[in-house]
Amino acid sequence: MTTMALRNTGTLAWRTLVQIKHNPFELIDFSVQPIMFLLLFTYVFGGAMAGSPAEYLTFALPGIVVQNLIFATMNTGIGLNTDITKGVFDRLRSLPIARSAPLAGRILADVIKQAWAVALLLVIGIVLGFRIETGPAATLGAIGLLLVFAVALSWVSVLVAMLVSTPEKVQIFGFVLFFPLTMASGAFVDPATMPGWLQAFAEVNPTTVVADAVRGLLSGGPVAGPVTWSLAWAGGLLVVFAPLAVRAFRRRI
């Protein structure tokens, strides 16, 4: 990207972030809702799943972080679709800015929001009793891996947003796509407890792979394999969906 494109991207990303001041309810998706999920899974299911909430928190926190990140990528598509249907992109197109800036700015702003949500969940998890058994470098590596996966997955949301007519449809299609991806995984339970056919799917599910990588980076355990497969999934999503999303974006605007 050129210097102008980078500057335009930063300006439009800031525009998206500043909107939170005028719509504080948007913080619910990135703050209150993740905390509610964390408390619910830890204290309602923890005893049944692992014998105690504290034991389950160690296993489940990385999975909850990944689940929240996956659902949060829908906000990218919803925001883009909203701007298009309200005519914001028509106004932006008349300005002397890089054509890629509106799309890149939205993705950058949402990645910043997701970084906030990841950090918030880790802090709340530590308050509840979660302990990071590795070091600062591994912790930053886990956060970086999560954000890389978020950027890759956000292109799926962008593609959906360009193919449907309203923000509500983006939310519906995103939920239908992402709900099975998060629940039929090893994010919350060990896949070994599942039926054989479901276990096979859960073990290759990117939600499981990323959750396992984050567990290894935060709590110890296997790291190389899960991280490698997580990056492979991120690269695959990027290679497949980014060109399709960009093409659909150009046609839509």
Rank of each mutant, 00 (worst) to 15 (best):
T2Y: 06
T2R: 12
T3C: 12
M4P: 01
R7I: 08
R7D: 06
G10N: 04
L17K: 15
Q19F: 15
H22G: 04
P24M: 05
E26H: 14
L27N: 12
I28P: 13
D29E: 14
D29M: 05
S31H: 15
Q33E: 13
I35D: 06
I35Q: 04
M36D: 15
F37L: 15
L38M: 14
L39K: 03
L39I: 03
L40T: 08
F41D: 03
T42H: 00
T42Y: 02
T42P: 03
T42K: 01
Y43K: 07
Y43R: 10
V44Y: 01
G46H: 00
G47K: 06
G47W: 00
G47Q: 06
A48D: 11
F59T: 11
F59L: 15
P62N: 09
P62L: 04
I64E: 02
V65C: 04
N68S: 15
L69W: 03
M74S: 10
N75G: 11
L80S: 01
N81P: 01
K86D: 13
K86M: 14
R93I: 12
I97E: 07
S100K: 07
P102L: 12
A104N: 09
G105T: 02
G105M: 02
L108P: 02
L108D: 01
A109T: 05
D110R: 00
V111C: 01
I112K: 00
A115C: 11
A117L: 14
G125S: 15
V127H: 07
F130Y: 09
I132Y: 00
A138F: 02
A138R: 02
A138M: 04
A142V: 08
I143L: 11
G144K: 06
L145E: 05
L145Y: 04
A150Q: 02
A150N: 07
A150K: 09
V151H: 08
V151S: 11
V151E: 09
V158F: 08
A161N: 10
S165T: 05
E168K: 02
V170T: 04
V176P: 02
L177W: 05
F179I: 15
F179S: 11
S185F: 13
S185P: 08
G186E: 02
G186H: 00
F188G: 01
F188L: 13
D190Q: 11
A192E: 08
T193N: 12
T193D: 02
M194Q: 00
M194P: 03
G196M: 07
W197G: 04
W197S: 01
L198M: 11
A200D: 09
A202D: 14
A202Y: 07
E203T: 10
V204G: 10
V204P: 09
N205F: 06
P206K: 11
P206W: 02
T207L: 10
T208I: 12
V209S: 06
V209Q: 05
V210L: 03
A213C: 12
L218W: 05
S219Q: 10
G221I: 15
P222L: 15
P222N: 12
V223F: 14
A224N: 07
G225T: 13
V227P: 01
V227G: 00
W229M: 11
A232I: 13
W233N: 13
A234T: 07
G236N: 14
G236C: 09
L237Y: 04
L237G: 04
L238I: 06
A242Q: 14
P243F: 09
P243T: 15
A248N: 08
A248P: 13
F249T: 07
F249E: 08
F249M: 09
R252I: 09
I253S: 01
I253W: 02
